[in-house]
Amino acid sequence: MNELIQRLIAAHRILNREIRREVARRFPDQLRLARLKKERLAIKDRLFRHFPDAAEMRRVARVALRSARHA
């Protein structure tokens, strides 16, 4: 798999984690949350340029996640 795709998937996962952490705070920072979501969407758009078919993108992401866990 392409290294760029793996980096994008990893960045997307990190942003998801940060968004969940921010939402879980007692008083979430709405500006930070908006910035994180905007970044996550930009990464998702870049991934879709490589994989216009959503099902194919999810399959590739699952493979990347599995390989990252076993590495």
Rank of each mutant, 00 (worst) to 15 (best):
V63M: 10
Q6K: 13
E18V: 10
F27N: 14
A64T: 12
L36K: 07
E3S: 09
S67R: 12
A42M: 10
H12V: 11
R69S: 08
A61F: 04
L33Y: 00
L4Q: 15
N16T: 13
I43N: 12
R69V: 07
Q6V: 02
I43P: 04
V60T: 14
F48Q: 08
L31I: 06
L47P: 00
R66Y: 12
R62F: 11
N16Y: 04
D53A: 12
R49G: 02
R25P: 01
V60L: 01
A64D: 11
P28S: 06
E3G: 07
M1A: 15
I5Y: 01
S67E: 14
D45R: 05
R26V: 10
F51K: 01
A71C: 12
N16G: 13
R58W: 03
N2D: 13
L65I: 14
A68E: 09
L33R: 00
D45A: 05
D29T: 10
R49C: 05
E39T: 05
D29S: 11
R26H: 07
A54E: 12
P52I: 02
F51W: 02
I19E: 08
R58Q: 05
I43S: 01
H12R: 06
L8W: 00
V60G: 05
L65P: 02
L33M: 06
F51I: 01
E39R: 10
V63G: 02
L15D: 04
P28W: 08
L4E: 07
K44F: 09
L15H: 00
A55N: 07
M57E: 01
E22G: 01
A34L: 10
E18S: 15
L47D: 00
L15G: 10
A61Q: 14
D29V: 12
N2A: 13
I19C: 06
A24E: 07
F48H: 00
R62M: 13
A55D: 12
E56D: 11
R35K: 11
E56G: 04
R46L: 13
H12S: 08
R49S: 04
R32H: 11
A64N: 14
R7L: 15
L41E: 14
L33T: 04
R40T: 00
R69T: 13
L4P: 03
V63R: 11
A10T: 13
R69Y: 04
S67L: 02
F51V: 01
L41F: 09
